[in-house]
Amino acid sequence: AGLLGSAIVMGVKRGVFANEAGLGSAPNVAAVAAVKHPGAQGVVQAFSVFLDTFVICTCTALLILLSGFYTPGFEGDGIVLTQNSLAAVVGDWGRVFVSVALSLFVFTCILYNYYLGENSLQFLTRNRTVLMLFRGLVLALVVWGSMQNLSTVFAFADITMTCLAFVNLVAMAMLFKVGLRVMRDYDEQRRAGVDQPVFDSRKFADLDLDLKAWPAEPSAAAQAEPQGVPAAQR
């Protein structure tokens, strides 16, 4: 029971760290997607979690287990283990490939999370001093993380992401009933044979919706669009 529980805890921590499910960061990006129904974007976001956790992470684990490099009691970090496992299958260039891929992944993740953090901060305050303090804190954390070992960085990330998850889970609990209503509307249209369900804000008059984003008569708004113009240009 202890072994199984430990494996589940480690899997959940690494899984959440990989796909950010439940942390509230992905909705910031998903919210700017141009879709006819919010339920459609929700399906895409759910598929991204499946793709990351069940496909990519499983492939990495199978590579390590089937490469023959891993032995019980291995004390190196996961990156070294992945590099050596790939090198055992495809040759020494596998280590270079993992290093380059990881560098690009880390760089884009830093920019992505910084962008989300700055946007959230500007929603709360436009004070430039606060913004400069935030930027300084981000740079300090990047320098600190580059000087620490991987276990320390992961431990720090686990603590901070747990705090982030608690805040987001409270918001999700408050929005649970609204989310179910939107999901039911999407599912009902799909069961009725509608290929691309359309969100009609008239069905949700009690909610504080942005009518520019979700018009009360979506079919009429679609007909008002200029004809013969490619969707990309519109």
Rank of each mutant, 00 (worst) to 15 (best):
L65A: 10
K177M: 01
F47K: 05
A213F: 05
L104T: 12
V130E: 03
F107N: 09
M172W: 05
Q196M: 06
S48K: 12
E188L: 09
T129R: 00
T60M: 13
G94Y: 01
Q83M: 08
C57A: 12
V35D: 02
T160L: 11
G24P: 02
G94I: 05
G145E: 10
D77M: 01
L4A: 11
Q223K: 13
E20M: 13
T125E: 07
A173I: 06
L137S: 12
R234E: 00
S151H: 14
V32T: 15
V98Y: 14
Y115N: 10
I79N: 07
S25H: 10
T82K: 11
L66G: 05
G145D: 13
G136Q: 12
N127G: 07
V16N: 06
V98M: 04
T129M: 08
A222G: 14
R184Q: 12
D195I: 05
K212C: 02
G24T: 13
T60N: 07
D200S: 03
A30N: 00
Y114M: 11
F176V: 11
C59K: 15
Y70S: 05
A231W: 11
V138E: 15
R190V: 12
F17L: 04
V167S: 06
L121D: 04
R191C: 05
F50I: 06
F107C: 04
K212Y: 06
V12H: 01
N19I: 03
L124W: 09
P27M: 05
V12I: 11
Y186H: 01
A40C: 03
T125Y: 15
L23R: 13
L139M: 14
T125G: 07
H37G: 06
S25N: 01
I110M: 13
T129V: 08
G5T: 08
Q41K: 00
R191K: 06
L104K: 07
C59R: 07
G136F: 12
T129Y: 11
V170I: 14
A7Q: 10
R184I: 15
A30T: 09
N84C: 08
L180T: 01
V43G: 05
F134L: 02
V16E: 08
G39Q: 15
L164M: 15
I8L: 15
V130N: 01
P226E: 08
Q45S: 15
Y112C: 11
E188N: 09
K212L: 01
Q223I: 02
T125D: 08
V43H: 00
C163K: 00
L111M: 13
A155P: 10
T71A: 14
F54A: 07
G91D: 07
Y115Q: 03
Y115H: 09
D77N: 08
A232N: 00
F47D: 00
A192M: 10
A31K: 10
L65F: 09
L169P: 02
K36V: 00
Q148C: 12
R234A: 00
L211M: 05
T129H: 07
A140Q: 02
